[in-house]
Design a binder for these strands. Structure first.
Lengths: 127, 127
DNA sequence: GTTACACTTCAACGATTCTTGTATTTTTGA
DNA sequence: TCAAAAATACAAGAATCGTTGAAGTGTAAC
């Protein structure tokens, strides 16, 4: 992932409306939701939701599939996982032993940081 | 984590400038950087960087410590890990077996999703 | 073929955000 | 105490974003 992609993804989620849409879709998993369903769930006008869905789709955070006259949306979970990798990439400049401090401070960190440490490149700056 | 916090964190990272600051700090780990060092590394005016550092600090994504006449900034990694948990919370409505599809699609997902599945609440909607 | 439905696109106004320049605060060293 | 350095606070202009209303596209039903 590059900076431009990461910024686009983060910006797409930086609105509470879009964040709620995305989280709702994550919750549904592979089933997804159709546009009207999303708008109804959030109590918002359809065109407004459509506007933000387009934004999420362009960022590749959600996917669309035509289904008769409905549009079914699904969350793109793998992209989120890649974003996390990008955000914590080169943590501690390739000295994962320093990350130990962090692992203790979060509920879920046990699973996350070891995975990231494993995929760490050798640190270009190499200090 | 609640929606307001998540939105604030995401919004803080949604600018390429702030994203670069944050990633630079992640890379430094516990050592962090002082404000002038950050501004120099990015080739930006000090007041502009200070503006965005304040934003990141208010979102709690970075911490500040006075050090003589310098201000040392460090990335708050645990908050990022909590954000990831929030974003993928209740994935597939508490049926983690559905998430198997996702795990295969990302380099780092092996470490992430199992951890999330383990910490999943019983799904309030409970369908 | 025509009508209704689901959804998207477009234009426009108000609100928010980003950058820059200037001034202020705090600390260091003489 | 005084001067210099590091960093932040404040104000103003340009640029961007979000919501709303009206119009448009495509699909399904009659």
């Amino acid at each position: 992932m590059d900076t431009a992609t990461a910024t686009q993804v983060l910006d797409s989620l930086a609105s509470s409306l879009r964040l709620n849409i995305y989280r709702g879709l994550v919750r549904r998993g592979p089933d997804g939701m159709v546009a009207g369903e999303i708008a109804a769930a959030l109590g918002l006008p359809a065109n407004n939701v459509s506007f933000h869905l387009k934004d999420l789709t362009q960022a590749n955070l959600v996917t669309v599939e035509q289904e008769g006259r409905f549009q079914r949306y699904r969350a793109n979970i793998p992209l989120m996982l890649d974003l996390v990798a990008y955000l914590t990439e080169e943590c501690c400049s390739g000295h994962p032993e320093q990350c130990t401090t962090y692992r203790q401070a979060s509920r879920v960190s046990d699973g996350v940081l070891p995975a990231l440490s494993r995929s760490l490149p050798p640190s270009p700056g190499g200090r």
